[in-house]
Design a binder for these strands. Structure first.
Ligand SMILES: NC(=O)c1ccc[n+]([C@@H]2O[C@H](COP(=O)([O-])OP(=O)(O)OC[C@H]3O[C@@H](n4cnc5c(N)ncnc54)[C@H](O)[C@@H]3O)[C@@H](O)[C@H]2O)c1
Ligand SMILES: NC(=O)c1ccc[n+]([C@@H]2O[C@H](COP(=O)([O-])OP(=O)(O)OC[C@H]3O[C@@H](n4cnc5c(N)ncnc54)[C@H](O)[C@@H]3O)[C@@H](O)[C@H]2O)c1
Lengths: 217, 217
DNA sequence: TAAGGCTTGTGAATTCATTCACAAGTTAAG
DNA sequence: CTTAACTTGTGAATGAATTCACAAGCCTTA
């Protein structure tokens, strides 16, 4: 019923945990779409996502009301709304910096392209890597990073350089105008508040398991 | 002051976010250790971790009181305590299931070994991969997974198989007695409550950036 | 020994996130 | 048309995490 559905009018700051769940809901909806199902209830969505139906409804309610009482949500409509909310209606342009093992795995990963993330190029400082290709993605000289950012305007930089190089690269790409970074280096990164930085820290995840195994019952 | 410092007597459930921060603090402390510094205040720790000194002290207070008023924390002592809390005083035995691109990158990653995570073996179902080595880690036939789990008792299984295979493998390793899983498949996994499951979902992180870029100001 | 400067540890207050619970709306059946 | 069975959307209640704020303790200097 709320008419202020426009995404540019977000009143409350949306929690990170909410965004992650929206992302998960979209995945389930795509699964339903593929199987030709036309509606889904918050309860079913919750069961798959390991959460509660109230949580699902609350998450969606921040953005509008997309369901029909007594019936549930239209699968294609809700999927479309979530894509819109998450900004997946468009292509996102990505640079990878660091053409090592993880960088190579990411460059070759099809899951990203499928969701609209196009990897334009990878960068490295090693002459062993520069000029090579990673499954169709060219590895360019890191020297040209700023020039290429200005020319090709990537939306996101994925950082896969060694930890002690990571902050340096962040400073460079931020200066060059990049406003979103996904880092795999196991270091804390600092950037201005208007730059979105996410870090995937696998060692931290393993340590979380170590903690859980150590401190059970 | 609190004498119930024993880690087996944890009264409150410790939040995941707390454990992640402890992990980060340990990293900073190791940095300080290497530079030969002997004490650190909660304020300095907070600055590096992008949090507040009250948060640091509260996090630590769940486990005891390790600091000296007026002075701060002894770097080596606090590092030792954190290792103990996180269960890093020992070797953790790890199997990797799925010897593809990500599995290979992880098998070759030195950061894990450094922190006490020893990769015993990798498993795959493809005859192209079985019998090969990934930087010293043997790739074995998935057929022998249960047998080897019983024999070698890995503490943790790292899951790097395609998404549609992930739940199947979880069920197998859980049945065989594994109680901790780190998955890289972009799917929601279900396991009994006494099994610790963490998922690193890179697509979800990228979507978080997409959301941030789409919904700024 | 006393004073001043610093920093911890922790209840209390606050802020943030999740869950409850129910009015209101929808559909289907008779 | 009426009733029964469902399901949404959302304030209010609860629960969890973070921040505040300060007494208590340690160190240095004189
Ligand atoms: N491999 C893994 O499984 C894994 C797991 C967790 C975290 N990580 C982290 O990911 C990052 C990369 O790891 P990796 O295993 O791919 O390492 P790697 O050594 O294979 O790759 C790093 C690449 O970065 C390049 N590089 C170094 N300095 C650079 C600079 N200043 N500018 C541009 N390129 C530069 C190197 O030439 C190399 O090709 C590290 O921070 C690591 O800690 C890796
Ligand atoms: N490559 C990446 O950068 C990346 C990024 C994000 C997520 N992921 C996820 O990580 C997982 C692996 O990705 P990848 O790129 O390494 O794929 P990949 O195809 O290179 O590797 C998957 C491996 O698993 C093996 N496998 C398949 N079914 C198996 C089974 N039932 N038992 C044992 N082994 C089996 C395959 O033979 C293959 O070697 C996928 O779930 C993917 O979505 C990968």
């Amino acid at each position: 019923m709320n008419e202020f559905t426009s995404l540019t009018h977000l009143v409350k700051r949306i929690a990170d945990s909410t965004v992650r769940r929206l992302s998960a809901y979209l995945r389930f909806l795509e699964d339903f779409e593929n199987r030709g199902l036309s509606t889904i209830s918050s309860e079913e969505l919750a069961k798959r996502g390991g959460t509660t139906s109230a949580q699902v409804r609350k998450d969606l309610s921040f953005f509008g009301s997309f369901g029909k009482r007594g019936l549930g949500y239209s699968v294609p409509e809700l999927a479309g709304r979530l894509r819109e909310i998450l900004g997946l209606g468009r292509e996102w342009r990505v640079f990878i910096v660091g053409a090592g093992k993880i960088g190579a795995a990411l460059a070759q990963y099809r899951g990203f392209r499928q969701r609209g993330f196009t990897i334009l190029a990878a960068y490295d400082n090693s002459s062993d890597k520069i000029g090579k290709k990673l499954d169709g993605v060219a590895v360019r000289d890191i020297e040209h990073l700023e020039r290429d950012i200005q020319r090709e305007k990537p939306d996101i930089v994925v950082l896969t350089v060694p930890g002690d190089q990571a902050q340096k690269v962040v400073d460079r790409v931020v200066k060059a105008g990049v406003r979103a970074i996904l880092s795999f280096a196991p270091t804390q990164l600092h950037a201005p508040a208007d730059v979105a930085v996410k870090t995937v820290n696998m060692a931290m995840e393993l340590e979380g398991l170590s903690f859980a195994l150590t401190n059970r019952d």
